[in-house]
Amino acid sequence: MRRFEYHRAETLEEASRLLTDLGDDSFLFAGGTDLLVEIRERLRRVRNVIDVKQIPGLSDITYDETRGLTFGALVTVGRLERLPLVRQRYPNLRAAFASLGSIQVRNRATVVGNICRASPSADTIPPLIADGAFVHIYSRTNMRVIPLAEFFTGPGKSVLAKGEIVTGITVPPAGDNTGKAYIKHGRRKAMELSTVGVAVSLTMEDGVCNDIRIALGAVGATVLRAPEAEAMLRGTTLDAVTVKSAADKAMEECTPISNVRASADYRRDMVGVLTGRAIKQALEAFA
């Protein structure tokens, strides 16, 4: 194992200061399920890790009908996966959480770490973007809250400046008229990264779709929205013909590459299939 120094921060300010003072190759350390793997496989040069797990106040989960679901940076995927509220109100998030790695991995991996790693194939990102989630960002001079959809700038890259720390995520409340789905497509059912992931969150009123967001994972440099497909669906009853043409539009809107997991053409085809399927699944909430 390549050597690195381990630091333990007791406050956000200390962690942020360490990040700037220790210089390049210094990273926050949460569950370590990305960081330690990248160190072992020599994918990332790491000289310092800054453990944030002793910082108080980052492990809370709260829900209320106006603000929605808020969870801190240290909340693990496993904890959220097992939460009855998530099972009942956010089946899309639940599907993403339960499909991430193994039980052992989920007991350590944080959702915020999954987001900060900024992988285009990260499973928690599409449903959180489709739900319109926000990211809370700490810096020593200025705190900010931004839409998750604006957080990513490329594979492995985000808007975080040196010394900035994500403190948590807020997901808007899940109203009774909402339907949500996330479908992960891989070569096998477990312990698999997404070949394509499609998330749909929609709201219906009197049988008409008044809002819908579609987020596509692993088919672009970041998780993508499909704005033109969404526009075709808003104001319709989501009949089969409209859904089919919107799914075709989503295929045009994505920008997949070929890699070991699948070819670009296959990924594009799957966007079409899974977009239709995810809309259908989201509508099951109203059946």
Binding site: G32, V37, N107
Partner: peptide, 10 residues
């Protein structure tokens, strides 16, 4: 009491 991968923990 919770299962974890000992290789992925310091």
């Amino acid at each position: 009491g919770e299962p974890v991968n000992a290789c992925l923990m310091l």
